[in-house]
Design a protein around this nucleic acid. Structure first.
Lengths: 204, 204
DNA sequence: TGTACATCAGTGAACGCGCGTTCACTGATGTAC
DNA sequence: TGTACATCAGTGAACGCGCGTTCACTGATGTAC
């Protein structure tokens, strides 16, 4: 749990910025983007609205910080799941297991935090999102690089493979987050798509 | 061009409902979902706000009608592009060309109407979106059915293939709509992914 | 063909609300001496 | 160690705004006779 209660005096909060981001996340998580607001965040923290202007230039800026954090978290979940994969003496199998774990993590995040996932990649100003989705993108590229090293994926696909994998998994994740696939179909859907990605990347 | 100007008297509009949907679309197209509003739609049409309540129960209902129309349009664009594909005496090639045309249409729509695409699949109440995205989904299934008939796709993939194809193409479309892929990469990205889908569906 | 009347799509004013942001301020903190 | 003071994170009141929706109404339309 992050520091949410005030420490010491009641006048100074201590870590308003962090608290605001956490509170904002919570609002979006339960009510979507339109539930985010300066006044609502302030109320949730137990502070007056203008106090937030000591830490953010505007509502927009708060949102930008929230989405950056969500993208980071998504990357961290992937990293965590990769770590938990059991080693296997068959290196190819091991790499493949890690790859699937990554994809599963991405989809799980979208499933469990649909509203956050929904807003994670929206564009602000002229910044490219991938620049911020750095961690997830990097992990994906490392994984595919391993496939190539082990001769599982042809070198010719070095540039395209990460894009194919990303968009496919992103597609499932989006549809799952939007509940566009019925709950009963989800399991089948997810594994069918992951098999499909594998088919597309691997030599046979 | 749909009937936008009033006909006959100035008092009765003639086709307010249609005009409201068109105007609402336009607002979303240029300013995103948050730009949609009863008052703004009314102003755009040249009518007072309460007039719209003769045709819609609420703002929400107007939005539902707009998204349904967008999904329909998306399907129609796909249909149109399929129609334009040149016949080819090699049936397999012909089917494949039509399949790619469909995918291209889907992505083009997302690229050209990013804001509309963004909101097309959002969930309202408890209705499943696919129920509404009927046309697009049907076309995709027919296409894959042809692949199976021609022995290009194994029968065992009958259920999974449409899901794999949909989510992959949907993924690209989403990322393109969000401008998460830089303009210079888009062409390579699109064709790489379409090649990937093909790899996943077809026997080799 | 002409008139009375029901229908109903539109108007105009008003409602209460919650929003982001600004401003002059106040209270707590921590540093200099 | 104790006091004066600069710093700055918070307050409270107020701003102007645009929103969705309601209400009693009015004006145009088309049907019955």
């Amino acid at each position: 749990m992050l520091t949410l209660q005030r420490k010491g005096s009641d006048y100074h909060h201590g870590d308003l910025k962090t608290a605001a981001i956490v509170a904002g996340r919570g609002l979006i998580e339960s009510g979507g983007l339109s539930a985010l607001g300066i006044r609502r965040v302030a109320e949730k923290i137990g502070v007056t609205a203008p106090a937030l202007y000591r830490h953010f230039l505007s509502l927009e800026e708060l949102l930008v910080e929230i989405t950056a954090q969500v993208r980071q978290e998504l990357g961290e979940l992937m990293q965590e799941r990769i770590r938990r994969v059991r080693k296997h003496r068959d290196k190819k199998k091991y790499e493949l297991d890690k790859f699937r774990a990554m994809g599963d993590a991405y989809i799980d995040y979208a499933d469990q935090h649909p509203r956050l996932f929904e807003i994670a990649f929206i564009q602000h100003q002229d910044k490219s999102t991938r620049e911020f989705g750095e961690l997830a993108w990097q992990l994906l590229n490392e994984s595919i690089e391993k496939f190539i090293e082990l001769g599982m994926t042809p070198k010719s696909k070095r540039d395209s493979a990460p894009l194919v994998a990303w968009s496919t998994v992103h597609g499932v994740a989006t549809l799952v987050a939007n509940r566009a696939v019925s709950a009963s179909e989800i399991q089948f859907f997810r594994s069918a798509v992951m098999d499909g990605v594998q088919d597309a990347l691997l030599k046979r």
